[in-house]
Protein backbone atom coordinates (compact mmCIF):
# COMPACT_ATOMS: atom_id res chain seq x y z
CA UNK A 1 0.00 0.00 0.00
CA UNK A 2 1.43 3.36 -1.02
CA UNK A 3 0.69 6.49 0.95
CA UNK A 4 1.03 9.50 -1.27
CA UNK A 5 1.83 12.81 0.42
CA UNK A 6 -0.62 15.29 -1.01
CA UNK A 7 -1.57 18.86 -0.30
CA UNK A 8 -4.85 19.24 1.65
CA UNK A 9 -6.75 21.13 -1.05
CA UNK A 10 -6.46 18.18 -3.41
CA UNK A 11 -8.03 15.88 -0.80
CA UNK A 12 -10.87 18.36 -0.35
CA UNK A 13 -11.32 18.43 -4.13
CA UNK A 14 -11.39 14.64 -4.22
CA UNK A 15 -14.00 14.52 -1.45
CA UNK A 16 -16.16 17.10 -3.23
CA UNK A 17 -16.34 14.84 -6.30
CA UNK A 18 -18.24 12.18 -4.41
CA UNK A 19 -21.92 12.27 -3.57
CA UNK A 20 -21.33 10.93 -0.09
CA UNK A 21 -19.76 14.24 0.95
CA UNK A 22 -22.30 16.37 -0.93
CA UNK A 23 -23.86 19.05 1.27
CA UNK A 24 -21.39 18.71 4.14
CA UNK A 25 -20.25 22.12 5.40
CA UNK A 26 -16.92 23.43 4.06
CA UNK A 27 -15.54 23.64 7.62
CA UNK A 28 -16.33 20.01 8.32
CA UNK A 29 -14.93 18.95 4.96
CA UNK A 30 -11.70 20.78 5.78
CA UNK A 31 -11.63 19.22 9.24
CA UNK A 32 -11.97 15.68 7.85
CA UNK A 33 -9.46 16.37 5.10
CA UNK A 34 -6.94 17.77 7.56
CA UNK A 35 -5.80 14.34 8.74
CA UNK A 36 -6.65 12.34 5.61
CA UNK A 37 -4.21 10.98 3.06
CA UNK A 38 -4.28 9.32 -0.36
CA UNK A 39 -3.74 5.58 -0.68
CA UNK A 40 -3.00 3.67 -3.87
CA UNK A 41 -3.33 -0.09 -4.19
CA UNK A 42 -2.37 -2.64 -6.79
CA UNK A 43 -4.58 -5.66 -7.55
CA UNK A 44 -4.64 -8.23 -4.71
CA UNK A 45 -2.99 -5.76 -2.34
CA UNK A 46 -4.50 -6.04 1.14
CA UNK A 47 -6.15 -2.93 2.51
CA UNK A 48 -7.75 -4.35 5.65
CA UNK A 49 -6.97 -7.53 7.55
CA UNK A 50 -9.64 -9.29 9.60
CA UNK A 51 -8.94 -8.98 13.34
CA UNK A 52 -6.54 -6.06 13.01
CA UNK A 53 -7.29 -2.76 14.80
CA UNK A 54 -9.65 -0.59 12.75
CA UNK A 55 -7.48 2.50 12.67
CA UNK A 56 -9.01 4.23 9.67
CA UNK A 57 -11.90 4.33 7.26
CA UNK A 58 -11.64 4.92 3.56
CA UNK A 59 -13.42 6.44 0.59
CA UNK A 60 -12.88 4.79 -2.81
CA UNK A 61 -11.96 7.41 -5.38
CA UNK A 62 -11.36 4.95 -8.22
CA UNK A 63 -11.00 1.21 -8.68
CA UNK A 64 -12.71 -1.72 -7.01
CA UNK A 65 -12.29 -3.19 -3.53
CA UNK A 66 -13.51 -6.64 -2.52
CA UNK A 67 -14.76 -7.37 0.98
CA UNK A 68 -13.63 -10.90 1.72
CA UNK A 69 -13.72 -13.44 4.47
CA UNK A 70 -11.46 -16.44 4.85
CA UNK A 71 -13.44 -19.66 5.15
CA UNK A 72 -11.63 -22.77 6.21
CA UNK A 73 -11.69 -25.23 3.32
CA UNK A 74 -12.89 -22.64 0.80
CA UNK A 75 -10.20 -20.01 1.04
CA UNK A 76 -10.93 -16.33 0.48
CA UNK A 77 -14.58 -15.74 -0.36
CA UNK A 78 -15.56 -12.38 -1.79
CA UNK A 79 -18.81 -11.18 -0.22
CA UNK A 80 -19.22 -7.93 -2.09
CA UNK A 81 -17.28 -5.49 -4.17
CA UNK A 82 -17.28 -1.74 -3.68
CA UNK A 83 -16.62 1.00 -6.21
CA UNK A 84 -15.98 4.73 -6.50
CA UNK A 85 -17.83 6.91 -4.01
CA UNK A 86 -18.34 4.05 -1.55
CA UNK A 87 -16.96 3.93 1.96
CA UNK A 88 -14.86 1.06 3.26
CA UNK A 89 -15.06 0.13 6.91
CA UNK A 90 -17.20 1.08 9.84
CA UNK A 91 -15.58 -1.08 12.53
CA UNK A 92 -13.66 2.07 13.56
CA UNK A 93 -17.02 3.41 14.82
CA UNK A 94 -18.00 0.43 16.92
CA UNK A 95 -16.19 -1.16 19.85
CA UNK A 96 -13.85 -3.04 19.95
CA UNK A 97 -12.62 -1.22 16.82
CA UNK A 98 -11.33 -4.33 15.04
CA UNK A 99 -11.97 -5.32 11.42
CA UNK A 100 -14.42 -8.15 10.84
CA UNK A 101 -13.49 -8.77 7.21
CA UNK A 102 -10.59 -8.47 4.83
CA UNK A 103 -10.60 -5.77 2.14
CA UNK A 104 -8.49 -6.37 -0.94
CA UNK A 105 -7.99 -4.38 -4.14
CA UNK A 106 -9.43 -6.10 -7.21
CA UNK A 107 -8.19 -3.48 -9.67
CA UNK A 108 -5.68 -0.64 -9.29
CA UNK A 109 -7.44 1.59 -6.78
CA UNK A 110 -7.09 5.05 -5.31
CA UNK A 111 -8.66 5.84 -1.95
CA UNK A 112 -8.72 8.53 0.70
CA UNK A 113 -7.93 7.23 4.18
CA UNK A 114 -9.22 8.97 7.31
CA UNK A 115 -7.43 8.10 10.59
CA UNK A 116 -10.01 6.70 13.00
CA UNK A 117 -8.72 8.30 16.20
CA UNK A 118 -8.86 11.80 14.70
CA UNK A 119 -12.29 11.10 13.18
CA UNK A 120 -13.67 9.82 16.52
CA UNK A 121 -12.26 12.85 18.28
CA UNK A 122 -13.86 15.17 15.73
CA UNK A 123 -17.20 13.36 16.07
CA UNK A 124 -17.09 13.76 19.84
CA UNK A 125 -15.99 17.40 19.88
CA UNK A 126 -17.92 18.80 16.92
CA UNK A 127 -21.46 17.47 16.78
CA UNK A 128 -22.29 19.25 13.54
CA UNK A 129 -19.43 17.48 11.77
CA UNK A 130 -20.27 14.25 13.60
CA UNK A 131 -23.90 14.37 12.50
CA UNK A 132 -22.80 15.37 8.99
CA UNK A 133 -20.54 12.34 8.69
CA UNK A 134 -22.82 9.79 10.31
CA UNK A 135 -25.85 10.90 8.30
CA UNK A 136 -23.75 10.14 5.20
CA UNK A 137 -22.48 6.83 6.52
CA UNK A 138 -25.88 5.54 7.48
CA UNK A 139 -27.47 5.44 3.98
CA UNK A 140 -24.50 3.44 2.70
CA UNK A 141 -24.79 1.03 5.63
CA UNK A 142 -28.54 0.65 5.02
CA UNK A 143 -28.03 0.20 1.27
CA UNK A 144 -25.49 -2.53 1.86
CA UNK A 145 -27.61 -4.25 4.48
CA UNK A 146 -30.51 -4.30 2.02
CA UNK A 147 -28.26 -5.64 -0.72
CA UNK A 148 -27.11 -8.40 1.62
CA UNK A 149 -30.73 -9.30 2.36
CA UNK A 150 -31.37 -9.49 -1.37
CA UNK A 151 -28.37 -11.78 -1.76
CA UNK A 152 -29.88 -14.00 0.93
CA UNK A 153 -33.09 -14.18 -1.11
CA UNK A 154 -31.11 -15.92 -3.83
CA UNK A 155 -33.12 -14.30 -6.68
CA UNK A 156 -32.16 -16.71 -9.37
CA UNK A 157 -33.15 -19.94 -7.67
CA UNK A 158 -36.64 -18.43 -7.51
CA UNK A 159 -36.75 -18.31 -11.33
CA UNK A 160 -39.13 -20.86 -12.82
Amino acid sequence: MTQIPTSKPSIVDTLRKHQVFEGISPDCLEAFAATAHHVSLQPREVLIQEGAPAEEFLLIDSGRIAIEIFVQGRGHVSIETLGPGELVGWSWLVEPHRWHFDAIAVTPSDLIAFPAAAARELLASNHECGYGLLSRFLPQIVQRLRATRMQLLDFYTLEQ
Partner: peptide, 23 residues
Protein backbone atom coordinates in the same frame (compact mmCIF):
# COMPACT_ATOMS: atom_id res chain seq x y z
CA UNK B 1 -21.83 -7.87 -14.60
CA UNK B 2 -21.95 -9.13 -11.06
CA UNK B 3 -22.56 -12.38 -9.24
CA UNK B 4 -24.34 -13.01 -5.96
CA UNK B 5 -21.86 -15.68 -4.94
CA UNK B 6 -18.24 -15.72 -5.94
CA UNK B 7 -15.67 -18.44 -6.17
CA UNK B 8 -11.94 -18.29 -5.48
CA UNK B 9 -10.88 -17.40 -9.01
CA UNK B 10 -13.53 -14.73 -9.59
CA UNK B 11 -12.13 -11.24 -10.11
CA UNK B 12 -15.33 -9.42 -11.03
CA UNK B 13 -18.11 -7.69 -9.12
CA UNK B 14 -19.85 -9.43 -6.25
CA UNK B 15 -23.28 -8.32 -5.06
CA UNK B 16 -26.81 -8.04 -6.36
CA UNK B 17 -27.35 -6.47 -9.77
CA UNK B 18 -29.33 -3.57 -8.31
CA UNK B 19 -26.10 -2.33 -6.67
CA UNK B 20 -24.74 -1.61 -10.14
CA UNK B 21 -27.56 0.87 -10.81
CA UNK B 22 -26.21 3.45 -8.38
CA UNK B 23 -22.82 3.33 -10.16
Amino acid sequence: WTVDRSSGVWNGNVGVVTRLISR
